[in-house]
Amino acid sequence: MASSFSILLVVVTLVALLAVVSCGTDFTVHIEKGSCPTKLSLVTNVEVSEVEIREKGSNDFLECKGSGTKWTLESKEPLKGPFAVRLTLKNGGYRVDDAAIPEEWKADSVYKTKIEV
């Protein structure tokens, strides 16, 4: 028969595993040095299939070019923040944060979104 200590150890281990599995990773966006009003160069903390940006006042998302964790959006006109971010995950699902990057963003800054992946 198992001792009460062994049973307690199994229960604690299962609870710990469930806590880790249920916690998502906060999605962050690092705006790289060299970004300017007409170009956003982004590095994400997790690999995704697609990143899209929506400017303030727009109904449409603009597709960033890149793959994995490195993405770029270039425009002939200055981009207007704050920016919404929509990403497509590797499993096909997508997530949106309507105010992921602030209006007064800065190059070489990291922004934590409301998205968990």
Rank of each mutant, 00 (worst) to 15 (best):
I7G: 01
V10T: 13
D97R: 03
T28E: 14
V85L: 12
T88D: 00
S6R: 11
Y111P: 03
V110Y: 04
Y111C: 09
E116F: 13
N91T: 08
K80A: 07
T13W: 14
L18R: 00
A100C: 10
F83I: 01
P78K: 13
C23Q: 03
D60V: 09
L14T: 12
V46P: 00
A19D: 06
V21R: 09
S58R: 11
W105Y: 12
T25H: 04
R54K: 15
K65R: 15
S49L: 00
E74W: 10
V46I: 14
E104I: 11
E77H: 07
E50H: 06
E55N: 02
S4P: 12
G66R: 07
K76D: 14
L73T: 05
I7H: 12
K56L: 06
I115Y: 09
S35F: 13
E103T: 09
P82C: 05
W71S: 13
F27L: 14
S58L: 04
R86I: 01
V10S: 08
T13E: 12
V15I: 15
L89T: 05
S22N: 10
C23E: 04
G24P: 00
H30Y: 14
I101V: 15
V29L: 15
T25Y: 00
I101S: 03
D26A: 04
E116K: 05
E55K: 05
A84Q: 02
